[in-house]
Simulated scan of single mutants.
Amino acid sequence: MRRLSGQDRTRWRATSSRSFRTFFFTELAESTSGQATIEAAVLLPTLMLVIALLVQPVCIIYTRAAMRSAAAEAARAIATDYDGDLSDCRSYVLRRLEAVPDVPLFHSGGASDWSISLSRGGRDVNVEVVGHVRPLPLLGVALAAFSESDGKGIVLRESLREEVRPSWIRGTYGDWQRLWA
């Protein structure tokens, strides 16, 4: 192997440092070209947009899961309601829906925006919870094209129909209460 002189070593360092400059890695050299600033100016807004597009569906899925859970809990509460007045069950659903943050990404309009429909007929219970969400502008256009929307935003609707008393159980709920009282 030949030993490099001082001038050859300087030339080798200069050419090798240029050859290691890549898109993501810039070695410190005598002159900086500002490549990292350009990369950051392009990558940071793109990265933020990707994160926002990934977070928005998660927020909507969380809201729908909370709505579905509140509807299921309401069905159980309606099944054991003894006085026939479902206003206490409605307030129970509203209390469960307080788990959803009142932020437009999750739910817009506050507690007054929730529309809750409760009904009981014989052995079946029907629960419907409706709310609105205002997604980010880019995703909002896509969601508005594929889902129901109105002036308040994208409509989120969860409906639940449950048979709370199987057909093999005879008598009414009042009969069962008297039996065990």
Rank of each mutant, 00 (worst) to 15 (best):
E128R: 11
K152Q: 14
T63R: 00
G171R: 06
S112C: 04
D113A: 12
T15R: 11
P135L: 00
S108P: 00
T15M: 07
T26A: 13
A14N: 08
R64L: 11
V125C: 02
S33W: 06
S16W: 10
Q177W: 08
R3W: 06
R90A: 05
E163A: 08
R134Y: 00
P101L: 02
P166C: 07
V155R: 12
Y92D: 03
T22F: 10
G121D: 15
S19I: 05
A52T: 09
S159R: 14
Y173H: 12
I60Y: 00
D81H: 04
T15K: 12
S159W: 09
V55S: 09
L86N: 01
V58T: 13
I51L: 14
L49H: 08
M48D: 06
L139T: 06
E73K: 11
W180P: 00
P137D: 09
P45A: 07
G171E: 01
Y62G: 01
W180C: 06
S115I: 06
S119V: 07
P45R: 07
V93F: 07
A72H: 03
L49G: 12
A75E: 01
G121C: 08
D83E: 04
T10G: 08
E163G: 05
I116K: 00
V164K: 03
L47P: 04
A66G: 02
A65W: 06
L156M: 15
S147F: 12
L4C: 09
A79L: 09
D102Q: 07
S31F: 11
A70H: 02
L179R: 13
E27G: 15
R170Y: 12
F106S: 03
I51T: 09
W180Q: 12
G110D: 06
L118M: 03
V103C: 05
S108C: 03
R178P: 01
R3P: 03
T15W: 02
A70Y: 03
A144C: 09
L156Q: 09
A144S: 14
S117T: 13
R90L: 13
R9P: 00
L118R: 01
Y92N: 03
L44G: 06
W12R: 13
G109E: 04
V103Y: 05
P104W: 00
E148H: 03
P135D: 02
A14S: 15
S69D: 14
W180M: 14
A14D: 12
R134D: 04
K152S: 13
S33F: 15
S167N: 14
A181N: 10
T26F: 07
T22P: 05
A79S: 15
E73G: 10
L47A: 13
R123E: 08
A40Y: 14
E30W: 02
G121Y: 14
D124P: 01
F20Y: 13
E73A: 14
R134A: 08
G84P: 02
R76G: 15
G151P: 05
T63M: 01
L54I: 12
L143V: 04
R9L: 15
E27C: 11
A52G: 14
S167I: 10
L54S: 13
S149T: 08
V125G: 00
I51K: 02
Q56T: 04
S117N: 15
L160N: 05
S147Y: 09
V155H: 02
L118F: 01
A52M: 11
P137R: 03
D150E: 04
S5V: 09
L47H: 05
S33I: 13
L138W: 10
